[in-house]
Each structure stands twice: as C-alpha cells, then as structure tokens.
Amino acid sequence: MRNAAACFRVGIALGLNFLVVGIVLAFILGGIIGLERQKRYIMAGVRTNVLVCTGSFLFVSLSIMMGQ
C-alpha cells in the first residue's frame, strides 16, 4: 500500500512539473511568434498569440491527463 501511495505522489509531482514547464514554454514561444507577426504589421500580435499558444497547450495536456 505504501508503494502505491508513493507512486501516486510522484506521478502528481511530475504532472505538475510538466504543466508548469509547458505553460512557460508555450508562453515564450507564443510571444516569439507574436513579436515576429507584430514586426510585420500583421493583425494578430503578441497578446493574441500568447493566449492561443497557452490555451492550446492547456487544452491538449489536460485532455491527455484526463485520459490516463
């Protein structure tokens, strides 16, 4: 019983680390895409791309986590 509980705690910690790192990475990459688009005077700028990238990451990762 103790081993199962320890594995469960490790799984939660890895899942939270994955989410935090993924959100930060999606935020940064979305910002880079947004800066490039804003530099070319295209309508969707930094904020839009950051929100889209972060939201997409959360939607996909939470769907995967719910399926496990």
Rank of each mutant, 00 (worst) to 15 (best):
L62C: 09
F8S: 08
Q38E: 15
V50N: 00
A44E: 12
L19D: 03
R37H: 04
A4D: 09
G34A: 07
R9Q: 08
V52D: 03
G34F: 08
V21E: 10
V21P: 00
Q38C: 01
M66V: 13
G31W: 02
R2G: 09
G67H: 14
R9F: 12
E36S: 12
G55P: 02
Q38H: 14
V20C: 01
L35K: 13
R40V: 02
Q68L: 13
E36N: 12
V46K: 06
L25A: 13
S63I: 06
F57E: 04
L14A: 11
T48V: 13
S56W: 06
G55W: 02
G45W: 05
A44F: 08
A4T: 05
V60H: 03
G22H: 10
F8T: 11
L19S: 05
G22V: 11
L16W: 09
V20Q: 02
R40D: 11
C53D: 09
L16C: 04
G67F: 13
M66G: 14
I32C: 05
S63K: 10
A13L: 13
K39C: 03
I64D: 02
M1P: 11
I32A: 14
I23R: 00
M1H: 09
Y41W: 05
L25D: 06
V46P: 01
I33Y: 11
L19C: 09
I42C: 00
L14S: 05
L62Y: 06
A4W: 07
V46I: 15
L51D: 01
V52L: 15
E36L: 14
R40L: 12
L14Q: 07
F57Y: 15
R47F: 04
F27L: 15
C53S: 15
R40A: 14
L51Q: 07
N17Q: 03
M66P: 01
A26Y: 04
C7K: 13
F59C: 12
F8V: 06
I42D: 05
L58D: 00
V24E: 07
T54R: 03
L58I: 15
M65I: 14
G45F: 06
R9G: 00
L29R: 11
S63F: 13
G67A: 14
